[in-house]
Design a protein around this nucleic acid. Structure first.
Lengths: 242, 242
DNA sequence: AGCGCCCTCGCTATTTCTGGGGAGGGAAAT
DNA sequence: ATTTCCCTCCCCAGAAATAGCGAGGGCGCT
């Protein structure tokens, strides 16, 4: 365990971030950042739609693989909690009451993850969701003080970091071929709020068949296997909002 | 037109933000902020999926009403551009090439909106999308310099501002939320990634009937009208993650 | 011991969705 | 001016989801 330090050179770091030229540079930067802050781990974790994940950070590869294999994404209270939050959160304030959450925590600590943590949720276009997390072994008071004092820097860092990561991420080309037409968005939205096809068609004052055409078209654009899948993808990509 | 000034007391403002006690306080704060920066307008603009909008800021009420009535939300290049962006953007860098965009710009300037602007997209939980915008009348170089020098403060301000606005927004109450059982979560997740009932049942190694029971149970707990609705709700409540 | 919830399984009937096939008019972009 | 979307409409047959009715064993809490 290291010693927590405040305020590394935010300017220099953002400068280096802006001149970074690939994901490898980001990995290097994150390690540097960890050393400057004196925390045990810093992780940038991109939580992608279909369960694909990308991250860089200082966790052991073993833990990262375990996390993916065990499907911890689905029970990790950090993910669950940050998904509902806007502001950064101290791990201590999350809900660890469920059995699976406690088991996860135990496993995480056994793999060298700190007992303290601070996670910043970040949201980007097309439903992107990412986390910028600092983790550490230490007592509650020190951690509380550290995160409070550095909150703003960390928010900015998370912001700039994500900004760069977005640029490097492949497949982020805003495909015009995949963007839904206004009518398609309306149709999908109505289905997402529980209307069946007849009701949705009625609401839009079009025939049920026409509505079906929109849904089918949207489904193909979204690469979805069925209507439910299409609605799920549209939601998680931020194409529709309910 | 005022004189651009840098760096008002960010600390004091964030402090006042944190002690704000309603939307009226936010409106007051935003006016204060405008005076401190010496810009013509500052606007916080919450853009909801269903077309509902909330905002506070220093635009004329006349312009705000005109904006809503004319449906400018759908053609405003600031909205369009920021929706696809993560980083704040200078209005000059947006796409003003379409005919409707130029007409909108003309109308906006005629209503006292500045020829310069800087907008910060903000995204929150459940697909929330908001803009924090500064607008001004002035020349390109001054504006460029002003926004560059204050970028970080503005990002933080937008962040904290939205954080408070989220709290004041009604209908954000976390309902008693009957929580889904583990099997129900698994079932809903599989449906959300495109499996049909048979495939999902097979994946979970249970009979299709049992899977149906889970889905029905989850549907009732979520107060959903059908499976698609249930998946949508589970997603937007963060009960499942895909 | 009883209550409630979770997990598992079966049956039938009705309604709804899915996946093909078409067709025409309009607006915008090349 | 041609192409390329977008919007709108129609038919059909098979697949899937929905809505009821059941059943029994297990686990935790009071």
């Amino acid at each position: 365990m290291g010693f927590l330090r405040n305020a590394p050179r935010l300017d220099t770091l953002i400068e280096r971030l802006e001149s970074a030229d690939g994901l490898d540079d980001l990995q290097g930067l994150i390690e540097e950042l960890r050393d400057e802050y004196g925390v045990d781990h810093i992780i940038y974790h991109w939580v992608n739609g279909a369960g694909e994940q990308y991250g860089c950070g200082t966790y052991d590869l073993e833990w990262v693989n375990r996390y993916i294999e065990k499907g911890y994404l689905r029970i990790d209270p950090v993910i669950q909690g940050c998904y509902q939050r806007f502001h950064p959160v101290n791990w201590k304030r999350l809900d660890w009451s469920s059995k699976s959450a406690r088991a996860f925590l135990e496993d995480a600590i056994a793999h060298g993850i700190g007992n303290q943590g601070y996670s910043i949720p970040i949201r980007g276009p097309n439903g992107q969701f990412a986390l910028f997390t600092l983790s550490h072994n230490g007592n509650d008071d020190d951690w509380e003080q550290f995160t409070t004092e550095n909150r703003r820097d960390l928010i900015l860092m998370a912001h700039y970091f994500n900004s760069r990561a977005l640029e490097f991420e492949p497949g982020r080309a805003p495909d015009p071929a995949q963007s839904l037409s206004p009518r398609e968005v309306e149709a999908m939205t109505l289905l997402a709020i529980g209307y069946n096809r007849a009701q949705a068609a009625d609401t839009l004052s079009i025939s049920e068949h026409t509505l079906r055409v929109y849904v089918e078209s949207a489904r193909h654009k979204l690469g979805a296997l069925n209507t439910t899948h299409a609605v799920a993808r549209a939601l998680s990509r931020g194409v529709i909002v309910i």
